[in-house]
């Protein structure tokens, strides 16, 4: 019986791997401190759910539709944020995600507002129904591995090198003739696309979504996974995602009096987080993120 519990955790871990690696593409590799990532996740989840519930659209079409929409939004988001750096970009993107959350909560005729969307159908891909937990776990594994491979390919490609160049020194990259705006926009779009797929994957698993999913706390969580894993590599993001998904679970087994379980577990979780950051600020699998130029040109 314990297997189903563990499989559920695995499914959730796969989700966060998808979300964390895609966010790392923006933060770690392109240097874009995007705190609006969950907005893309929300767009994916709501799009495929609404299409499935209202029009019977099959999962894979709905998910791709959601992902495309998210990618477009991601691309467009580059325009206003093009000039911003560091913490300011973080705040701007955070504002963006709060606005999206506001819309989801208030546009009741579309999203049912705070009531959420129950009864989302389980996915069925080309006739193959993914309706049991073990099947969903396999589905998750395949998705996560695919995403990981795609992202690894991207970051090792010439495009990936451009992104890292932008991260390290955008001015220099521009001088060398790279269209940095286009590169940043594409990175954001790809990151959004993948996050949205994650959103659809999740929505059709729990079969119910509502705006509480896409809260600031969720952003903090995914962001922590990226940092804890270390922004220097995709593998780090996987590690961060897995660790922080599993971290609160053993705390369930610690017997606290029921009157304080909530506060106590959250406190322990927060404490562990602070300790990890304090002791190992570069993340689990990290080196210096902002490296100097690789060619040995010191600055």
């Amino acid at each position: 019986m314990i297997e189903t519990y563990l499989l559920h955790l695995f499914i959730i871990a796969c989700l966060y791997v998808i979300l964390t690696t895609s966010l790392n593409l923006a933060i770690g590799y392109t240097g874009l401190l995007n705190l609006g990532h969950i907005a893309f996740y929300a767009i994916g989840a709501y799009t495929s759910s609404l299409l499935a519930l209202n029009f019977g659209v099959p999962f894979w079409i709905g998910a791709l539709a959601g992902a495309t929409l998210a990618a477009i939004v991601g691309y467009l988001l580059s325009y206003p944020t093009i000039k911003l750096k560091g913490d300011y970009l973080a705040l701007g993107t955070l504002g963006f995600s709060i606005i999206v959350e506001s819309v989801l909560k208030n546009w009741v005729s579309l999203t049912r507002g705070p009531l959420g969307l129950p009864g989302i159908p389980k996915p069925s891909i080309f006739g193959f129904a993914i309706d049991t937990i073990p099947k969903y776990a396999l589905f998750g594994l395949i998705l996560a591995v695919l995403v990981y491979i795609v992202l690894e390919i991207v970051v090792r490609s010439p495009f990936g090198r451009v992104l890292q160049a932008i991260r390290d020194d955008e001015m220099a990259a521009k001088t060398l003739g790279k269209d940095t705006f286009n590169a940043k926009a594409k990175a954001l779009a790809l990151s959004a696309f993948i996050a949205a797929i994650g959103g659809s994957y999740y929505a059709h698993y729990v079969t119910f979504i509502d705006p509480t999913f896409f809260s600031i706390l969720e952003t903090i969580l995914i962001f922590s996974m990226v940092i804890v894993g270390g922004t220097a590599s995709m593998l780090g993001s996987v590690a961060g995602a897995v660790l922080l998904t599993l971290l609160p679970e053993p705390l369930r087994f610690l017997p606290f009096p029921s009157s304080i379980i909530g506060g106590m577990r959250q406190a322990l979780y927060a404490l562990l987080l602070v300790l990890v950051i304090r002791w190992r600020p570069q993340g689990l699998i990290g080196e210096n993120t902002f490296k100097k130029f690789k060619n040995g040109v010191k600055r």
């Binding site: 989700l15 729990v206 509502d210 509480t212 609160p248």
Partner: peptide, 8 residues
């Protein structure tokens, strides 16, 4: 108040 935690 998080759905994936509810399921877990």
């Amino acid at each position: 108040y998080k759905s994936d935690k509810t399921a877990a």
